[in-house]
């Protein structure tokens, strides 16, 4: 068991999370809806069933946008 760095947006911040962990489990721990984000590791999108390892640097990138009234 180790930790990995997770970059979050809006607002920009970084948190450490336990690893290894499945992407889907990480999102649940962070209370993030999988429909509202993409998880990116080293510039590559990873699916929900991918296992993230200690020392990975992961970005949870929001995809919701729009400013209609």
């Amino acid at each position: 068991m180790g930790t990995m760095l997770v970059r979050l947006r809006n607002p920009n911040r970084e948190v450490h999370a336990d690893a290894p962990v499945l992407v889907s489990v990480l999102l649940k721990r962070l209370d993030i809806n999988r429909e509202s984000v993409l998880v990116v590791r080293n510039g590559t999108i990873v699916p929900g069933d991918e296992r993230l390892e200690p020392d990975d640097v992961v970005e949870v990138r929001p995809v919701i946008s729009g400013g209609s009234e």
């Binding site: 947006r9 809006n10 929001p62 919701i64 729009g66 400013g67 209609s68």
Partner: peptide, 13 residues
């Protein structure tokens, strides 16, 4: 990627 700072809290989101 960053959201427009003026759109925070709008009902569409």
């Amino acid at each position: 990627v960053d959201e427009c700072p003026m759109s925070a809290g709008n009902k569409h989101l």
